[in-house]
Write a protein that binds this DNA or RNA. Structure first.
Lengths: 147, 147
DNA sequence: TGACGATAGATGTAAATGCATCTAATATCG
DNA sequence: CGATATTAGATGCATTTACATCTATCGTCA
């Protein structure tokens, strides 16, 4: 009859708060490193990275949306900013008049690489240094259960 | 001589992206549940919870800041909103003219409890259901290394 | 075909956030 | 003591985000 859901255990609750806090702390550290290197925010990297790893350096907005988990309206405006900086450009999508391509420019590729140099070091410093290989795998394995 | 930091391993990088994505997804689900129940955002809960668990139901802003990882200027304005809703009130801190107390009101206590009913169920549904007890402990243990 | 609902993406407006800076009070140290 | 530095917290302003809605196009089905 009743939609009974038992309350979360102590361990589950503290797993959740650990996820929130770890992410908060780590993101702040990494963003700080990027900023210290005069780089744009991490969200820019995420989009550029999805484009870089795609087949032709171009994706539809909705594809980027799926891969980055950005909200549609946020992505739309993020693309505006990237475009304004010359890192991507929008092109028509012939097969569907509603669609667009987001195409990475050379400047976009270059910036992504420069960002990765900083970002990679930052990941290693803040995360890699504190985890054994198998621990990192454990984290990824368990957390991917939520995707 | 050189500040050599080796690049992060595949496993470390994917641990990081897993943290980001899991948090993103879970937070979105939980916030959606709260909103569906006409409740304020999770950040309100975090502050109210810190107040509720404190000795006298009151804390200094900087204490809340430390415990929630909110930025000082964000917290200051969040307290504005809470105060406007009658959930907390600011009081003078006698021992230091610069300081303030943030005092939880009865309405604040009540709301926190109502929020917890929703929040707890949400945690259990989205997280608890997908983790064994020892897995939850593993996550918390590993992620707390970053705090 | 043509009406209708669904989908891709953009956008106006309000709210929240980030950044820099400000005020007021306290601590430090010559 | 008095000048200076530091700390707690607030705030003006620009940027970003959330929410709702809009436009344009497409797919479906009578």
């Amino acid at each position: 009859m009743s939609e009974k859901t038992s309350n979360p255990s102590e361990a589950v609750t503290s797993a959740w708060t650990s996820i929130m806090r770890a992410r908060e702390r780590l993101l702040a550290s990494i963003e700080a490193d990027l900023k210290a290197a005069s780089m744009p925010p991490l969200a820019w990297y995420d989009v550029l990275w999805e484009l870089a790893r795609s087949q032709d350096g171009k994706l539809r907005p909705y594809e980027i949306e799926e891969r980055t988990l950005l909200a549609q309206y946020n992505l739309s405006r993020l693309i505006d900013r990237l475009e304004k900086e010359g890192l991507v450009r929008r092109e028509a999508f012939a097969e569907d008049g509603r669609g667009r391509w987001v195409v990475m420019t050379d400047a976009g590729r270059k910036l992504r690489e420069r960002m990765w140099a900083v970002y990679a070091k930052s990941i290693e410093t803040h995360i890699g240094c504190k985890l054994a290989e198998n621990e990192a795998k454990t984290i990824a394995g368990l957390l991917d259960r939520f995707l």
